[in-house]
Amino acid sequence: MEHRPDPAFRTALSYIDLSRRYYAAHGYDVPYRWATNFDAPFTAPTTPPTKANVALVTTSFPVVDGERSPKSVYAAPSRPPPVEMFTADLSWHKGATHTDDVESYLPLQALSEAADEGRIGKANRRFFGVPTRYSQRLTMADAEQIGSWCRQDGVDLVLLIPL
């Protein structure tokens, strides 16, 4: 029989609720405090996507000699797109899917094709990676570094893709 979501509950999973319950079951009494804001900064684009230099940001990491590269903010060349990325230490649904296809979370090839077909101006020469951290202070330092790289590269639009 086809599995259907229970209409008595919202269909989109609440990862805040699930993780709080899951770690409480492990005996951790103090729940994680998620970043919470009621406002959000907004920059209107000045360049249409068809003329924009588009950069990607990922939470995955390059693989070096079969291991994860050091877990700090990084920039890496967009071409050729990596054939594998390190995702094993990230939280994703390991029982339901896999991350063997890099394009399913870091679409560098698709972005490059979009540039070739004129759907974007160009794919930025490098992409950026940011570690998932529990410290918001450290994440902000990483954000400043990525901002500085985006300025250097003349990026017009950033697509951020957490796993």
Binding site: A12, L13, S14, Y15, I16, D17, W34, A35, N37, A40, P41, F42, T43, A44, P45, V57, T59, V130, T132, Q136, T139, M140, D142, A143, E144, I146, G147, C150, V155, D156, L157, V158, L159, L160, I161, P162
Partner: peptide, 25 residues
């Protein structure tokens, strides 16, 4: 990652987050 997007918007870069954890973002 959403904090990074917020910072980039603050300093003048338009962003789009693509993700599957709706409540977190």
């Amino acid at each position: 990652m959403s904090l990074v997007a917020r910072h980039l918007e603050q300093i003048g870069f338009p962003t789009v987050v693509i993700g599957s954890a709706r409540d977190v973002v």
